[in-house]
Write a protein that binds this DNA or RNA. Structure first.
Lengths: 220, 220
DNA sequence: TAGATTGTTAATCGATTAACAATC
DNA sequence: TAGATTGTTAATCGATTAACAATC
């Protein structure tokens, strides 16, 4: 039995590395491996081995064994539990445009405990349709649906101009976590967790790193 | 004339905040404002005001003025220049599935200096089509096209199983920066910059924060 | 002038890395 | 046994925040 360290406070940096480990470990397990060493894990992911060991020891009571490394199954289970991926979260999606439809079709979320139960839009053209088995309902029905089903996670894929409004509606209806794909800054009460999926920001970071790389080479 | 501080080394943390500032500042400019103070900026984005001032002073030679704050236009221009957003990067997109198509349709990248010149896929069903004015070519034509047009940025939206292969092809063809939307870990030479757009990782972080929030409330 | 704001220095905080004994 | 690997302690590095004089 794996002991879960749920009350441990992991740093933001650690938490953002855990899903990366998780995917890698799942791949290794699929490939038939039974164990993995922190050194191999670190090398492949271009991280520091001590850092990896610290991260792992933080979330897992399963200790690694010299020469062998860590047991894959134990490690995977520990990370999943720690991140709360073993509890399924019901979610609604608001904004069934191009991106919203893509997310509705994506099957990968199930591996991470996300279960989209309904989608909403203001456009009568899509309301009433089903995408990947998920009904698209009228935006007006969002509050009642969220309350009735006690949904806690909202995925926001509306246009920028509609984002704050939709987020407010979600928050008022009882949504406690918003995954924001709209390129807009949201103001929300502190009890609502927001994760911005900011493509533009991400692109800017990539762009900066590319420029720096190119400049560095010129100077050599 | 705005002096650009291109050789300054900004921390990763700073670089990831800059695009957030940028979007906020652009919104403020659109709303008709001329100046903004670091205190207001910090309050709205829930950051520390000193941190904001440090970030801004790092990238902009335009100094703020007591009582007034910073000039919006100067600030925006400085951040854009610093991040390299004023140089346009040509890009190719590989994998014209649901997500790939969505990205091809997205107009917002132009604000961040990204210009998608061609898309590629192995599926004869989409090859030859145009999406948002961008031609979808056969995957086989990727290397020659990238070389001919001297494209440096690649957007990867293929299925997981095809990701490493496509990334290798991109790298061999001269691509210097890969924006990876495939849920896969890529191994690439050091001279290729990779930015992973890992939805699963992001979801895991959101999930963890939600769980922690709920648990905290229970314990009160 | 009074008060808001900037910009800088010093202190604190947190995360990463180096060193190394313990273990299989 | 020899060597790979773990896990922990201490040192380093980097980022954030507190304090405050200078400025408009």
């Amino acid at each position: 039995m794996i002991e879960v360290k749920e009350d441990v406070v992991a740093s933001k940096a650690t938490i953002s590395r855990l899903p990366v480990y998780l995917r890698f470990l799942r791949d290794k397990l699929k490939a038939g491996d039974e164990n993995i060493s922190s050194t191999v894990l670190a090398d492949e992911l271009r991280l520091n081995a001590v850092q990896v060991r610290k991260d792992l020891s933080l979330v897992s009571s399963a200790s690694g064994r010299p020469k062998l490394g860590f047991n894959l199954r134990e490690l995977i289970e520990s990370i999943e539990s720690f991140l709360g991926l073993r509890n399924t979260h019901d979610a609604v999606l608001c904004g069934v445009g191009s991106l919203g439809s893509t997310l509705l079709k994506y099957e990968g979320f199930k591996n991470y405990g996300l279960n989209i139960v309904a989608a909403f839009d203001t456009d009568a053209g899509v309301v009433g349709k089903k995408i990947n088995g998920i009904s698209v309902l009228s935006y007006d029905a969002l509050p009642s649906t969220v309350r009735r089903l006690n949904v806690q996670v909202g995925i926001l894929t509306v246009p920028k101009a509609a984002a704050q409004n939709a987020a407010d509606t979600m928050a008022k209806s009882g949504i406690r976590a918003i995954w924001n794909f709209a390129p807009a800054h949201l103001s929300l009460p502190d009890n609502v967790v927001v994760k911005n999926e900011d493509l533009a920001a991400s692109l800017a970071v990539l762009s900066k790193r590319l420029e720096d790389n190119l400049r560095r080479e010129e100077n050599i």
